[in-house]
Design a protein around this nucleic acid. Structure first.
Lengths: 334, 334
DNA sequence: TTGTACGCGTTATCAT
DNA sequence: ATGATAACGCGTACAA
């Protein structure tokens, strides 16, 4: 292939060591020698071999990211955050998607942890405590992303999902709503429960009753949201406001509400969580809760790079705040 | 860090070579010895060092992907295709985003081509012929993505953008439309011109005149589409159908058409290109042209892996077909 | 099966 | 102060 450090050394009539020093801008080389070495490098079009460098220095300048998917915008934004922060620190990103497949999650983590990268950011769902503890024992640093139940000995960056439910409910209550419904995502998802708990907390804090028939399940899909909202709308005493655990369901709910002959926001206020792209494109634009996805990726890299640098940080869970995005799908209760 | 091949060899009382053979499932090791080595590996929790392996074998089992962005769904789907195809072939993906910044494009390509990966997929915009030829001289294989003007000595996988414009126009014409407008994206984009050329070709093929005032520029943004369509709607003799060079602009155009007091599709038929997520979520759902993004990523990997494998393939440009996605934003001209 | 020379830089030690 | 020598990192591959 290309010329190696030996070729450069030979041509410049110095030793490999000297070339290495020049390469890394280290002292111990006279200006004249350095100049000559640089010229030879240029002349030969020399590029140091990254792999050899990694082997010798025990640093790969690469971070691993394990994440379920990429076409979901939620993950896409996280990846972007990771990527940009990694680049700023001169790290390259190894991206591994798993589709949340447990076997693949293990495979990929094993592969990454075998020296390929300096550290890993994990957004996994099947790796249990025992496995993560074993990972920790390898000494290679890693950070968990959006795992609110991570063990106390691990580093994690998460979104405050409970706050998401709280802020949404709080907003609806501030508009005067008292009959507020909640549409759950998949019951297996932790996120939906955290959001619901915040939702309930806000209601309690304001003394608003939570009616059992106002709580539905929608599986995070548009169709699920549609069905759940249809049921809500056919209730004898339908809610005046609905919070869906994500935007997809909110968009489905919008459809159902419209079909029932009601209008958003005139008759029913509607909110989602996520702030997906479509949220601002539908009519009316959807009021929602935005998650700090990009920031999450950045923070994870931040933490990880410090760990790689050898800092002895206390394991801690960083919980990032969400923000309310007011658009036009909510209105004061009459 | 962890145990090395030497530790395993010592403990199993064999040579490094033997361990290596066991590791790679190669012959020349008796069943009993193999068994003992495997046990020791298990016992020590041995994981071969990926970097050392790469250095010795001159294979990294890693592919590089250079792409402008990731939050744009167009790119996201490509990445997904690349990732899934790469995984199937036991390659890991190095993802580098550039935001189309010329300096970063070079930086990243240089970094990847210095031995870090076995091959690279390039979706770049600033790398010129001279540079690409220099890359080719390095001997490390690479494939260009969506670069319809790639030199004949290079490998490339692209979408048939001209066909996109052609199919869209053909469809509108088949519905009886004769007064058809086109909204350009950014004039610097090649895609918009290819789409336009197909559009024009279809009109010519059917003997439909292309009126100058029906061609506008919208810069690929929703706002641009809005403005362009507003102008079209205020023409003395407005078009009955509009093709926007992408969905974003089509969505902006929908807004403008509605504001002008007309309805889609009753008064004006509207089409986009891309099939972004929002296309199916707006009312009416947008008829559009879907690009084989996922497939594009897969094909690029396919080609690249064959090149890495040493196949002497003729440089060729693979052109992937687009598909018409009929929804509800078009209707027969009255 | 083993011994050992690689692959290609890095870095500690030594010589001038 | 400069620069050379050589061990090292960890597997791979070929001759013995």
């Amino acid at each position: 292939m290309g010329p190696t450090i030996r070729d450069v050394a030979a041509r410049a009539r110095v030793s490999k060591a000297t070339v290495s020093y020049v390469l890394n801008g280290r002292p111990g080389v006279s200006a004249r020698t350095r100049q000559r070495v640089l010229e030879v490098m240029e002349e030969l079009g020399y590029r140091p071999n990254t792999v050899a460098r990694s082997l010798a220095s025990r640093k790969t300048q690469t971070l691993g990211l394990v994440i379920p998917d990429i076409s979901d915008m939620f993950y896409a934004h996280i990846i972007r955050g990771v990527e940009s922060a990694a680049n700023e620190r001169d790290y390259i990103l190894n991206l591994c998607t798993t589709r949340s497949d447990p076997r693949r999650e293990r495979e990929v983590v094993d592969s990454l942890m075998s020296g390929r990268v300096d550290g890993v950011i994990l957004m996994t769902y099947s790796l249990d405590h025992a496995y993560l503890e074993k990972l920790r024992a390898t000494g290679r640093p890693f950070v968990l992303l959006d795992d609110p139940d991570a063990g106390p000995s691990l580093h994690a960056v998460s979104v405050d999902n409970s706050e998401a439910g709280f802020k949404a409910a709080e907003y609806l209550i501030s508009l005067g709503h008292r009959k507020i419904a909640f549409i759950h995502g998949s019951p297996r998802s932790r996120d939906t429960w955290y959001r619901f708990s915040g939702f309930r907390r806000a209601l309690q804090a304001s003394g608003v009753a939570l009616r059992e028939e106002y709580v539905r399940v929608g599986d995070f899909t548009r169709d699920g949201g549609f069905k759940a909202a249809s049921e809500l709308m056919s209730l004898p005493d339908p809610p005046t406001a609905i919070l869906a655990a994500n935007d997809q369901m909110a968009i489905g709910a919008l459809e159902a509400i419209t079909r029932s002959g009601r209008r958003v926001p005139e008759d029913v206020s509607l909110m989602g969580v996520d702030d997906i792209e479509a949220a601002s494109m539908i009519r009316p634009p959807l009021t929602t809760i935005r998650q700090p996805t990009y920031e999450m990726g950045r923070q994870a890299v931040d933490l990880l790079v410090r760990l790689i640098g050898g800092e002895e940080l206390e394991p801690r869970h960083i919980l990032l705040p969400v923000t309310l995005v007011v658009r036009e799908s909510c209105r004061s209760a009459t």
